[in-house]
């Protein structure tokens, strides 16, 4: 069990001294405070932290969906200033368009980018996640797990090199979540995308990650990074092992022991929860 962290050989994405302050009715609200992390090329990184600590804020900044108050985000050493074609985003709760069937949902990025979809690749992805026979279905005709698989296909369809996932399986039941985690690991092993995955679920983070980044309560700072050394592909059986148990507990302790070690947080009474989660 490693407490010190290895730094990646080749940095794919990097967040440097990120500060994000929201203007709210009750005054400025500090959501990210001097947060930094380097994500290695092809790494699977999870970010965990208490609710409302700024995880979504961090991910949206990385996706170029909103700007930081100060600090830098880089992708392949280039600053990220807006939505980036190399970044695919998987949102909480699938976020499929209910008026489009699966095929047309998956085509959306290409319509917007005015590009021709690589149908062979899309068909391969669909088969990979077992949705080939469902492309004509509308989101409301599919289970939550199927919807989330479709949204992963959509995010991978245009071959981004980085996948940002914001609690993608948060709304799924435990069994479906386990199955999705195994599927995601398989896809990751096949494609070797760089993945930044946000979750509340520490066990999920340990199962999936190469490294787990633990955030403090709001304003989000980096509390600790945990290396997860288990060999791939992992099976769900490892979740019952002593090592995993200890790791999960260590991460849990890290999150709980420092609930609010902040001094700059003057708007502690501001509302909790995410405005865009």
């Amino acid at each position: 069990m490693a407490l010190a962290t290895t730094s990646p050989a080749r940095v794919k994405m990097s967040v440097k001294s990120a500060i994000k302050i929201y203007d709210t009715k009750s005054g400025p609200l500090s959501a990210l405070d001097n947060y930094s992390m380097d994500i290695g090329d092809g790494e699977f990184a999870c970010v965990v932290g208490p609710s409302g600590c700024g995880k979504t804020t961090l991910l949206w900044s990385m996706a170029g969906l909103h700007s930081l108050s100060s600090g830098h985000i880089t992708l392949d050493d280039q600053p990220v200033t807006g939505p980036h074609p190399q970044i695919g985003m998987v949102f909480q709760e699938a976020n499929l368009l209910p008026w489009r069937n699966l095929a047309r949902n998956i085509r959306l990025p290409f319509e917007i980018k005015r590009e021709k979809p690589d149908q062979t690749w899309i068909d391969h992805l669909l088969e990979r996640v077992g949705l080939t026979d469902f492309v004509g279905k509308f989101p409301r005709e599919l289970s939550g797990g199927m919807q989330q698989r479709a949204s992963i296909v959509r995010a991978l369809s245009f071959k981004p090199s980085v996948l940002l996932m914001d609690e993608p399986f948060g709304a799924l039941d435990a069994f479906t979540r386990d199955e999705m985690n195994m599927l995601l690991e398989e896809i990751w092993l096949e494609t070797r995308k760089t993945i930044v995955f946000i979750t509340h679920n520490i066990a999920e983070a340990v199962f999936l990650s190469d490294r787990v980044f633990v955030m403090t309560a709001r304003p989000g700072r980096l509390a600790k990074v945990f290396d997860i050394p288990f060999p791939r592909p992992r099976s769900l059986d490892i979740m019952a092992t002593r090592e995993v148990f200890d790791l999960v507990n260590a991460i849990k302790a890290e999150i709980q022991h420092r609930p609010t070690m902040t001094t700059s947080n003057r708007t502690a009474g501001a509302r909790e929860g995410s405005a865009h989660g």
Partner: peptide, 26 residues
């Protein structure tokens, strides 16, 4: 629906594309 608008923006959609692909169908 902020999430759907953010989705379109993550693909690099312009304001007009967001209007056409998200707001109108909605």
């Amino acid at each position: 629906d902020l999430a759907k608008i953010a989705l379109a923006r993550s693909f690099g959609a312009s304001t007009f594309q967001i209007f056409l692909k998200i707001r109108v169908p909605m």
